[in-house]
């Protein structure tokens, strides 16, 4: 080693060779770091388009329903839509629904409600967060015409395979909002009352079909399905369609839901 090779920490100036080594080390590590970054960015995803209009409030008028989900029947961008409603944070909008029912005497049909909230949309679905809680209800007025819900029931049991997701994150508040990394968040949201949804992919891997999950009596079973969130599951149940919104009614016991065996076989191959 040359004389000036030996560098001591408190020295103001290092020898040429030492400085050169430091630069080499810096260059090699930044190069490897960037390579890793590129590789990671290349293989991650793909991420589907979704929007959460954070900070922007939108108003809607229409009739409100509470089955299969608390939602408002209105029109958005010239299209008739039923927009499901969720609360702020990882909570449902049930407190708002209760308050609303107090004002209308327990009935929802026959009232024109004006609501304000933040829009969430992805996969062709539109949801809304009632960001301001009870303040989100701007006006409640009686309505002359009464809508009737169209209910279709298949009556037979079918098996559906997909992933249980929390719709608030899934339809736009977070992205990605599926699979393992998001699992605990989805559990928190569903535990907070946000209605769980079975999201089903089509052959191209795109999410196309969505089912609200209820028990046979049509009640929420959020707390019974928490551990099945964020993983591929198969559900056996009766399917019904209420005004275009699909519901799968299942028996809550865990043996109704089967882990797909491919899950426990490979670490890197979760989900399809």
């Amino acid at each position: 080693m040359e004389e000036n090779d030996f560098y001591i920490g408190w020295q103001d100036q290092a020898g040429k060779t030492s400085k050169r080594r430091l630069l080499d080390f810096f260059l090699v590590s930044i190069l490897l770091a960037l390579l890793f970054l590129l590789l990671f960015s290349w293989v991650e995803g793909p991420f589907q388009k979704s929007t959460f209009e954070y900070g922007k409030l939108t108003e809607f008028s229409g009739e409100v329903i509470d089955y299969p989900v608390f939602a408002i029947k209105t029109s958005h961008k010239g299209e008739d839509r039923t927009i499901p409603l969720v609360g702020f944070g990882k909570f449902s909008a049930n407190p708002v629904l209760r308050k609303l029912k107090e004002r209308t005497g327990g009935k929802l049909s026959g009232f024109e409600i004006r609501l304000r909230g933040t829009l969430i949309y992805a996969h062709g679905q539109v949801w809304m967060e009632l960001t301001e809680g009870e303040e989100s209800v701007i006006a409640v007025a009686p309505k002359s015409t009464v809508d009737t819900l169209v209910l279709e029931t298949s009556g037979s049991t079918i098996k559906l395979t997909g992933e249980i997701v929390d719709p608030k994150c899934f339809f736009g508040v977070m992205n990605p909002a599926v699979k393992k990394v998001h699992k605990s968040c989805a559990i928190r949201c569903i535990s907070g009352g946000i209605p769980p949804i079975l999201a089903i992919r089509d052959r191209d891997g795109e999410f196309q079909d969505f089912y609200f999950i209820r028990n046979k009596a049509g009640q929420y079973i959020n707390d019974k399905i928490l551990q099945y969130v964020g993983i591929p599951v198969s559900l056996n149940g009766e399917v019904e369609q209420v005004d275009g919104l699909k519901v799968i009614k299942i028996d809550p016991p865990s043996n109704q839901m089967v882990y797909r065996p491919l899950l426990d076989q490979g670490i890197a191959k979760c989900g399809t």
């Binding site: 998001h182 968040c185 928190r188 907070g192 009352g193």
Partner: peptide, 8 residues
């Protein structure tokens, strides 16, 4: 992000 603003 994942655990805040929740019920616990």
């Amino acid at each position: 992000n994942f655990h805040g603003l929740g019920d616990i």
